[in-house]
Design a protein around this nucleic acid. Structure first.
Lengths: 192, 192
DNA sequence: CTTGGTTGTCTAGCGATGCTAGGATCGAAT
DNA sequence: ATTCGATCCTAGCATCGCTAGACAACCAAG
């Protein structure tokens, strides 16, 4: 039995290596540079090994997305916990979210832009994704205001943040005034 | 001279055909399906002809983006002109924008998501892109509120719309409650 | 210790991609 | 009619995601 367990451990370790390497390569040179050949070379295995762990490139992106979603949730929770007062928490959340997107553009894309073959906004949505949304909801639900569904408010606020994050990084918005846009968003959307 | 002019006309016509065909193909089967071979076959020329008009696939995407931006500007202006009262105009703008994104997903991607090699938010930004932003500004500038720069407000509002549009289409947001999210956005962001 | 079979990995290759070099063909001007 | 330049196509390159089939390493049974 021990032999089999060791093999499984090693296999799991290699899978983590694949995901970590894909993420690293994507952050360094963009997702286009994450080819199965380059990835295989970096983990020092041949190409087909990747396919014994994942169905294809899509699933690898999906794995990075799940890992990233867990991190995003943690980052958001840490930021909101450190602030006091509902409004300050919302500020902290917004800054933490945009900061995560700016610091981990490839991971952010894996979660929210690319096709990782993951189901979103459904019952069978993977736990990390649900939890990331929950992390937003925990904070934003408090400032939805009367008569507004907390879930709906969270979705809307999140969409606004997402728009800022993606448009800024894609060069569609000048990066200088980000702080002011965030302030405007928080001031107007959140009901103290 | 007339001969040369005829040739130039035909050349311009063929270029329009390329852009229109690329757009059509992208809307039908997605941008991934827009390969240089398929595109060449559809316009009934060989592949290299594409490269006598555009540097590569990127520039073709860029051409579709410019065409789309002009349309978007027109759609937004038509919608706002038909509504009366600042707030109603904002509603109309938001709905028209999201409607355009939903009806022309490939074109929307060409403008705001994909890399068409175009400069954004700069002096040398092509006129159609500047004008599309101007169309938003014309309407949204009126409801920025005191002490808020109209340009900054427009950017922020636009980002929020962009977030709704992309997250909804990517399946990250359930499509049912779109209308409520728009109402929330307009009610809170715009200063009557 | 040998053998047989399972498990794991690699080499090689398929079709498709964006893009380009070089030759062929056609038309306009002399 | 002949030259010459512009125009276009055939053919090919490197690379992509993915897979079939050969090969080697390993473990259990005799």
């Amino acid at each position: 039995m021990s032999v089999q367990e060791r093999k499984e451990r090693e296999r799991a370790k290699r899978e983590r290596l694949i995901v970590a390497t894909a993420r690293e390569l994507a952050e360094q040179q963009g997702w286009d540079a994450v080819t199965t050949r380059r990835l295989a070379e970096r983990i020092e295995y041949s190409q087909p090994v990747l396919y014994s762990h994942f169905r294809g490139k899509r699933e690898i992106i999906g794995a990075v997305a799940l890992e990233g979603a867990a991190e995003l949730a943690a980052v958001v929770r840490a930021a909101t916990a450190a602030a006091d007062g509902p409004r300050e928490r919302v500020y902290a959340l917004a800054r933490a979210y945009l900061d995560f997107a700016a610091r981990n553009p490839a991971v952010y894309d894996a979660i929210f832009q690319l096709d990782g073959g993951l189901p979103y906004a459904q019952e069978d949505t993977p736990a990390p994704l649900k939890d990331a949304f929950a992390a937003l909801l925990e904070c934003l639900g408090d400032v939805a205001g009367d008569g507004v569904d907390p879930g709906l408010f969270t979705e809307t606020f999140w969409a606004a943040l997402h728009g800022l994050a993606t448009l800024t990084r894609a060069g569609r918005l000048p990066p200088e005034d980000t702080e002011q846009r965030v302030e405007l968003l928080v001031d107007r959307l959140s009901m103290v």
